[in-house]
C-alpha cells in the first residue's frame, strides 16, 4: 500500500506546481495526497473564501458536493466538494468537518452556481444547512418527510 502524503511540503515535492497546493496553503487545516487525489480540509467558516481561491487557481468546474456521516465520532459530518480544473486536467477535493449539533456551512453557489442542486440534496439526505442558499428545500424526499435518510442513525427497519 502506497502511504499517503500528509504535509504541504511533501505534496509539493511529489506534485511540483500543483496550483491548488499553493492557493490553499493559507486556508488548509490538513492536506492529504492519497491515491492520486488531493484533499484539503478547511475550517467551515473559510469555505467561501477557499472556494473562491480554488476557482482562481483554475478549478472552474464543480463536479459534486456530498457528505459523509462519521457517526458516532465527532466532528460528525464531512462535506466534500469535488472540483475539476479543465485547463490543467486535475481534480481535487475540499473537505469541511461539521459537528453533529445543528450542522451548517455557508453555500458556495456564489462561486459555482452548479452547487445549487447538490447542496439541496445534502440538506435533504443529511440535514446539513447551507446558509445563504437561494432555495434550501428538500429535493429527493417529499416535502413533509421527517428525518434525513442518509444519516447513520436513521432507522432502516420497522414502522415509522
Amino acid at each position: 500500500m502506497t502511504p499517503a502524503l500528509l504535509t504541504p511540503e511533501a505534496i509539493e515535492e511529489a506534485q511540483p506546481g500543483n496550483p491548488a497546493v499553493a492557493a490553499l496553503r493559507s486556508f488548509a487545516e490538513r492536506m492529504k495526497w492519497d491515491r492520486n487525489e488531493l484533499t484539503v480540509t478547511i475550517a467551515a467558516s473559510n469555505i467561501v473564501a477557499a472556494a473562491a481561491a480554488t476557482k482562481a487557481a483554475g478549478y472552474n468546474y464543480l463536479m459534486d458536493v456530498t457528505a459523509v456521516d462519521w457517526y458516532p465520532s465527532e466532528p460528525r459530518f464531512q462535506v466534500s466538494y469535488h472540483v475539476l480544473s479543465i485547463s490543467t486536467k486535475k481534480l481535487m477535493r475540499l473537505a469541511v468537518m461539521l459537528s453533529g449539533e445543528d450542522p451548517s456551512v455557508d453555500t458556495v453557489t456564489s462561486v459555482w452556481p452548479s452547487a445549487n442542486y447538490y447542496e439541496r440534496e445534502v440538506f435533504d439526505l443529511f440535514g446539513i444547512r447551507f446558509a445563504g442558499h437561494p432555495n434550501m428545500t428538500r429535493i429527493m424526499m417529499p416535502t413533509d418527510w421527517k428525518g434525513h435518510p442518509l444519516r447513520k442513525d436513521y432507522p432502516v427497519e420497522g414502522y415509522r
Binding site: T109, S110, P113, Y117, G132, P134, N135
Partner: peptide, 17 residues
Amino acid sequence: MATIAPPDLLIPGIDDV
C-alpha cells in the same frame, strides 16, 4: 454571509415559480 450567484444563473424552485 455569502453573496448570492448572479441572477441569470439562479435555479428557481417550484415555490418561486
